[in-house]
Write a protein that binds this DNA or RNA. Structure first.
Lengths: 334, 334
DNA sequence: CTGAAAGCGCTAACAG
DNA sequence: CTGTTAGCGCTTTCAG
C-alpha cells in the first residue's frame, strides 16, 4: 500500500505538505499543490484512516442503533440517516439493539471504543439513568423517545399528540367503539413510546366524549404484524364489538387490517383503522392506511444537527426538539 | 482515556502481557491473568481499535453495499447480515449505492481505504469488468447477481428459475394472459436481475404453451410500488386484458395489487399476482401475496462464509453458489 | 512464560 | 509557506 510519504517523495515535498494539500488545512503554493495531487493520482494513494484516527481521535463515523433494521420504520430511518450523514461527510455504521435495554447500552459500549464520533440511538426501552450514563461516554442523540432528562439531546416524536389526533379523527368519522392495538405498556416505564401513545389514545377518547373500555385492547405481545393480526382475530372470535382501531405503529395497523380481512370485516365500512409512522407501505396497502406522519426528513436532519453540535461542544446543555406531524387520511378511515 | 499501558502498570506487568491476556494469543500464568483482568475491570479499559487496526491492518468491519436501505428486501437483508456478522465477530457498515454502477464502485473505493476487511455488494448494475476491478481491491462477495466471471465470489439468486416457476404456477391456476411487471431490461446488460427474471417469465410462458404478448408488459420506469401501481392502472385504462401478473419483486407486486384495486379488479378472482423475494409484508398484505422465496438466511450465511474464506485466502479461485428457493402460494393466486 | 524495543501511517506543534 | 520532530496505542519481533 502506497502511503503519504511515498507521495511526498514522488512530488519532491515533505509528508506534511501532502497532508496539508489533501486536507486543505493550510494554504499551499499552487504549483506544489498541483505536483502533490498529480503524485497522488499517479501512485493511486488512498489514505489510511486508522492512522489518522489514531492521531486525531476522530473517525468520521456515526453509529446508528436501532432495534431491528428489518422493521420498515427503522429501515426507512436508516436510509435517511445514511444519506443525510453522507452529505455532512460522515459514514454510518448500523447496530441492531434487539429492542432490549442491554442491547442499547452495548451499542454505546461499542461506541466507547473510539469507533464512532457520535451515536444516534433510536431507543425503545431506555430510561433516564441509562441515558445519563450513555451520554457521558459519547456524543449522543436519542431519537423518538421522550425523556425528562435535561442533559441528553433528543428528538422527540409527538407521541401522545399524534395518537390523540388519530383517535379524535376516528371519532369524527363516526366510530364509537375504538380499540387500541399495541403491545402492553411495560411496567414501571413512564416515558416509553408505547406508554405515550396509549396516553394519547385515552386523551383522544376523552376529547370525543367516549369512555375507555378495557375490553377494547387488542391482545398482543410484540409490535409485529403477526401479533397484530392474531390479536384482532382473537378479539373478533371472542365476539368483542368495535368499529375503529388506533394502532401504535403502521406495521401493527397493517397486521390489524390483515386480521380484519380474515374475520370478513371490511375496512373502512365495518371498521376504520389508523396507524402511526407513515411508512412507505401504508400508501400502497389495500386499503391504503390513514396514519400519523411525523416529518421524517426533519427528524433526521435535526438529529444530525444536534449530534454535530454536540460533537463540537460536549458541555452544552441537552436540547429537546419535538417533530412536527400531519394526520394523513387515506382509504382506511374514509 | 485509559490505555493498555495503564492497565499494565496497575497489574504490575508489561503491556505485552495485557495484550496477550486480552487477545488470548499466548498462554499466560493464571494468577497474572487474573490480575490483568481485574485491572481491566477496575480501570474501565476499552481497547482503541484504531491503534490495533493501524498495527494489524484488519478492522473487524465488513461493508455491506445495497442500492437503498429503505427497500424492504435490502432492509431485511441488512438486518440478517448485521446479525450473522455479529456472530462471527464482525461489525457491519452499510453503504447505499443508489443503484448506480458508479455508486457501487464508490463503495469499494471507500473500502480500499482499509476501512473494511471485506465487502458484500448487493449489486444491481454491475458488470464483469467492474467486478474484476473491485475484486482486486478488497475481498468481495457479490450477492444476488449472476455473473459469468470466474474470479469473483458470488451468491447467485435463482432468478430465471424463480420467475419461470412463478409463471408456470399462474398458468396452472388457469391464467392465459399473463403480464410481466418490471422496469425495462437495461440495454446492453446481459446478466442483470431484471434481464434474468424476464427470461424466466418467457421460459415459463413457453413451458405453459402460452405465447408472449408484448402488450402485456406493465409500463414502469423504476422498481417502486408507485410506478407499479401507476403502470398497471395505465394498462387497465388502455383496455389491455390480462388475468395474471408476474412481478419482478414483491414490492412491485404489492404496487400492482394496489393499482388493481384502483381499477376495481379483484385479486385473485379477476387477476392473479405473484412476486419474488418473500419480504415480510407479503405474508400480511390483503390479499396475501404468493411469491418466490429464496432462502435468505442461507444466502447471508453463504455470503459470509465465502467472504471470511476469501479474507483468509485472497488467491483462491472464485466460487458461485446458487440459493435454493421455494414457491410460496398465498391468497393472491389461489 | 514474560519483557523491551521498534514501528504501523498519520498529524499537532513547533521551527524556520 | 514548508519542514522536522515526536508520538497517538497497539502488536510484532526478538531477547531473556
Amino acid at each position: 500500500m502506497v502511503k503519504m510519504s511515498d507521495v511526498a517523495r514522488l512530488a519532491g515535498v515533505s509528508t506534511m505538505t501532502v497532508s496539508n494539500v489533501l486536507n486543505g488545512r493550510r494554504s499551499v503554493n499552487t504549483e506544489i499543490r498541483r505536483r502533490v495531487l498529480e503524485a497522488v493520482k499517479e501512485s493511486g494513494y488512498v489514505m489510511n484512516r486508522s492512522a489518522r484516527t489514531l492521531r486525531t481521535g476522530t473517525t468520521g463515523v456515526i453509529g446508528l442503533a436501532v432495534p431491528a433494521l428489518h422493521h420498515a420504520y427503522f429501515a426507512e430511518l436508516g436510509g435517511r440517516v445514511v444519506a443525510q450523514a453522507a452529505q455532512l461527510g460522515y459514514r454510518v455504521t448500523v447496530e441492531q439493539t434487539g429492542a432490549h435495554v442491554q442491547g442499547e447500552i452495548d451499542a454505546v459500549a461499542l461506541a466507547r471504543t473510539l469507533e464512532y464520533d457520535g451515536l444516534i440511538l433510536s431507543a425503545i426501552g431506555i430510561g433516564p439513568e441509562e441515558a445519563r450514563f450513555l451520554n457521558q461516554s459519547i456524543p449522543l442523540v436519542l431519537l423518538g423517545e421522550k425523556l425528562f432528562e435535561e442533559t441528553v439531546d433528543h428528538i422527540a416524536m409527538p407521541n401522545s399528540k399524534g395518537t390523540r389526533a388519530a383517535t379524535v379523527h376516528l371519532a369524527s368519522q363516526g366510530c364509537k367503539r375504538i380499540a387500541w392495538a399495541s403491545s402492553p405498556a411495560p411496567v414501571g416505564e413512564t416515558h416509553n413510546v408505547v406508554v405515550d401513545r396509549l396516553l394519547g389514545y385515552r386523551q383522544g377518547l376523552a376529547d370525543a366524549g367516549l369512555s375507555e373500555d378495557p375490553g377494547l385492547r387488542v391482545p398482543m405481545d410484540h409490535l409485529t404484524m403477526r401479533d397484530a393480526a392474531e390479536g384482532i382475530r382473537q378479539m373478533g372470535k371472542n365476539g368483542v364489538e368495535f368499529d375503529g382501531v388506533v394502532a401504535v405503529t403502521d406495521a401493527v395497523a397493517l397486521g390489524i387490517m390483515r386480521g380484519l380481512a380474515d374475520l370478513g370485516l371490511r375496512v373502512p365500512q365495518d371498521v376504520r383503522v389508523i396507524g402511526y409512522d407513515d411508512i412507505e407501505q401504508s400508501e400502497f396497502s389495500t386499503p391504503s392506511l390513514s396514519t400519523i406522519a411525523p416529518d421524517h426528513e426533519w427528524m433526521v436532519s435535526a438529529a444530525l444537527t444536534l449530534l454535530t453540535e454536540r460533537i463540537k461542544d460536549r458541555s452544552a446543555p441537552g436540547r429537546e426538539l419535538v417533530a412536527p406531524f400531519r394526520l394523513i387520511t387515506r382509504e382506511s378511515t374514509s
